[in-house]
């Protein structure tokens, strides 16, 4: 085992635990009740999910239509399935399958 790797992993892992767990354990959201911080926190969820979607899709965007086509097909499949069935799981699966099929069809 590489000790440098283990040291980096333990430091980063400990920080991750602190970032994720301490605000929950201390119920830091209660300190925010009724004020501007409450509005900030309630917007954090939608903002985070929007950000993560944009960050995940951004590297796939390219002016090369052939490379972009599977991304468009996959995105439309997610939108279509979600509109039809209101299911996160089915929409995700449809997007991945459509993206894979479009990649295969375009060779």
């Amino acid at each position: 085992m590489n000790w440098d790797l283990l040291t980096v992993a333990v430091l980063a892992g400990a920080a991750n635990w602190a970032f994720r767990a301490l605000p929950v354990i201390t119920r830091s959201d209660r300190m925010a009740a009724g004020g501007w911080l409450e509005r900030f926190l309630s917007a954090t969820g939608p903002a985070a999910i929007a950000t993560l979607f944009v960050a995940a899709i951004l590297p796939a965007l390219t002016p090369d239509v052939r490379a972009l086509a599977p991304v468009i097909v996959g995105t439309l499949a997610v939108l279509g399935l979600y509109a039809a069935r209101r299911s996160v799981v089915l929409a995700m699966l449809a997007g991945a399958v459509a993206h894979g099929l479009a990649t295969w069809a375009l060779g």
């Binding site: 993560l52 995940a56 899709i57 894979g100």
Partner: peptide, 17 residues
Amino acid sequence: AGLGFMLPALFLALLLS
């Protein structure tokens, strides 16, 4: 490619939800 699109698809579906 299909497997690589799983997470963007998941985030988009969560955003819609």
